[in-house]
């Protein structure tokens, strides 16, 4: 491989990492409160607001049921509004974030719903406010599951980021399509795939380790 190609691979890897990191970061910032709200706002729950819960539920499902490649194209005006362009790495972050937020929200909702209701009752009996219950009980207790969920979300985002190449998004997926496939350079394709495999492996094992460290329900040696 020429130095030029190696430079391209390094640059694409950095682009992918940037897109995934920013999208996952913003997706978590938005998805965490959304997920907690979805988990606590049904009838009779902490922040009971069944109508808002149902509305947000529909919105989340609508976003999640739209195939990612279609979402990318469908929200181009919105992307242009936010990023000033619809092409390139910065622009690709917009659809990635839009897709990851509801996904992360659902994962966090599931993690929070797994928390023993007895703990919520105990906190209520101590005189805790709903916000205190979320901050001191629900989120800390759900944290190991939240970390596993976010790991899954990041792995999915790495996959999604390959698709934004279709709209000039850059990154490893884009490189693989343009050089590996269209210019028929199997070595580039193989390298791209290898780098993606390594990335996913690293993310997954880091997430697993972190979740295990945070999980105090298991006895540690």
């Amino acid at each position: 491989m020429s130095p030029e190609i190696i430079r391209l691979i390094v640059q694409s890897t950095l682009d992918t990492l940037t897109m995934v990191a920013v999208a996952a970061g913003i997706g978590t910032l938005l998805g965490l409160p959304l997920g907690v709200f979805l988990a606590t706002s049904k009838r009779g729950e902490l922040f009971a607001a069944p109508a808002a819960n149902a509305l947000l539920g529909v919105l989340v499902n609508a976003t999640r049921s739209t195939p990612f490649i279609i979402l990318v194209v469908a929200i181009i005006p919105f992307t242009r509004l936010l990023a000033g362009t619809s092409i390139g790495t910065a622009a690709a972050i917009v659809p990635l974030t839009v897709a990851s937020t509801p996904f992360i929200a659902r994962l966090i909702e599931g993690a929070v719903r797994e928390v023993d209701q007895g703990l919520v009752e105990a906190a209520r009996a101590m005189g805790a406010t709903p916000v205190q219950i979320v901050r001191k009980v629900l989120v800390p207790e759900a944290l190991p599951a939240i970390v596993l969920g976010l790991t899954l979300a990041v792995v999915s985002l790495i996959g999604f980021s390959a698709m934004v190449g279709a709209v000039g998004g850059g990154g490893l997926g884009d490189l693989g399509i343009r050089y590996g496939y269209q210019r028929f350079m199997p070595d580039v394709m193989a390298t791209v795939v290898a780098v993606l495999i390594v990335l996913v492996q690293l993310v997954q094992s880091f997430g697993d380790r972190l979740a295990r460290r945070l999980n105090k329900r298991l006895r540690h040696a």
């Binding site: 007895g118 800390p140 207790e141 105090k216």
Partner: peptide, 8 residues
Amino acid sequence: HFNLLSSR
């Protein structure tokens, strides 16, 4: 069932 926080 005690209802202690496992994370604390």
